[in-house]
Design a protein around this nucleic acid. Structure first.
Lengths: 250, 250
DNA sequence: GTCTATAACTGGATAGAC
DNA sequence: GTCTATCCAGTTATAGAC
């Protein structure tokens, strides 16, 4: 079983080569096709034959490179994972260096979201498919290899830690709840189902990430501020509407 | 092809019978099993044989009642759709009657979310599975019949209309964007993947809907207020960081 | 590395007895 | 309404030629 990491050829030059797709090999053709199909129909909705047909290669090649369907799926997720991870971590580094002690919620949320959304907006179709695939696996963790989580979980902890600087009083539980709300919104934004197009009668387009990014950052930051600023110790309140006294003390 | 609606026997009494599951017939056994399996693995991740095995009935029965796998899937979605729809519409009626001209964002969001979350919290395992299934189809509209959308789209329009009363200045597009953020958070909350449990080291539990409901309502309402209060016509701004001055007015 | 051929199996669906 | 038996298209995966 060939290790995926061992297959990447070393870069002769620094920086991003302008067009690496001069002559894509079969392996990358398969990955591209799989990325496109898995991202729209999920693991079980796609057959290897469809993937290889879209890639215009023989079916057996997929098994040659990836052994199993699950191996192919893992390889698709892993192909861009490290690059995304590094970019997002760098965004946090940059932001923390520039903000110093004056960390804002908007800044933290922006550092978390912007690298993703910018790549999803400006990247090629492969990147767009990749991010949609991320949103697929976020709701269906069934087929995601544990190793892939190492590229995503640390970013969540980093976000929570930076947020804690901006909101020293906030309970950690509230911060994680807010993260879940945030990532749910992000997931739906990246999945681009087109539902919002229909609902809004064409006012909004689900792939208009340029419209989504500023709104999403403001939206989440404001929500975090509100939830985390509210003392959550004892809220007996009146049991009228949705004011359930949660008693979730820290 | 038997129409699903024609199959429902007429109710002899009004109101909801306390225990209709005294002796569940095969049809409902199949629906229960399908609900449980589809909600965790999606349409393509489940076989009819698995469903009927879980229901302890013969495989051919599923085809007898629902003709095709897609028919079974549709029937699962439709079984509880009308009840949920009526309950959520009634929540809006109640809220609008009680609020009169003083509609709040929290009130509108609560009317939209609370009926769902309360049923997801207090209902039986069938209801929990059903709501998880809703979150599955929200990210994968591939297999959802157009007829089912009639139970959900009107509620979105209703939410937007009520929100517009609370925010007369808001642009309709912003309101729909906010709805998308909201429904993304809701979707992830209902899918209960357990990811937040791991990330928070056990501080949060993804099926703790009692903790989620008040936070989610506050979070979304605050985000809506922020996004919709901000004038969005021309935003050249400075292309620096993402430090949007939050202007949390109101 | 790539392709042909095929093994081994599983899926949805149906005919027809009871 | 329920079950037995089966069809057959399509699936992953592999062996082996080139």
């Amino acid at each position: 079983m060939p290790k995926a990491a061992a297959r990447k050829p070393p870069r002769a030059t620094v920086g991003r080569p302008r067009k690496e797709h001069a002559r894509p090999d079969a392996r990358n053709l398969i990955l591209d096709a799989a990325e496109a199909l898995f991202s729209t129909r999920g693991f079980d909705g796609v057959t290897i034959r469809e993937v290889t047909a879209l890639a215009n290669v023989d079916t057996a090649l997929a098994h040659y490179y990836f052994t199993t369907k699950q191996g192919l799926f893992d390889a698709v997720l892993e192909r861009r994972a490290e690059e995304v991870f590094a970019e997002r971590m760098a965004a946090f580094d940059r932001y923390e260096a520039e903000a110093g002690k004056h960390v804002t919620i908007e800044g933290a949320v922006g550092a978390f979201l912007s690298p993703l959304l910018q790549r999803a907006r400006t990247g090629g179709v492969g990147w767009k498919n990749y991010f949609r695939l991320l949103s697929v696996v976020n709701n269906d963790p069934m087929h995601v290899a544990p190793s892939v989580l190492l590229y995503f979980d640390p970013l969540v902890h980093r976000l929570v830690n930076v947020l804690k600087k901006a909101l020293p009083e906030a309970s950690v539980a509230d911060l994680y709840w807010c993260f879940q709300f945030l990532t749910g919104s992000l997931t739906l934004a990246l999945s681009r189902t087109g539902r919002i197009d229909r609902l809004s009668s064409g006012l909004c387009h689900s792939d208009d990430l340029a419209a989504i990014e500023p709104r999403l950052i403001e939206y989440c930051a404001s929500g975090i501020r509100c939830v985390c600023a509210k003392p959550r110790k004892t809220t007996p309140a009146r049991p009228g509407a949705h004011e359930s006294r949660t008693g979730q003390n820290r």
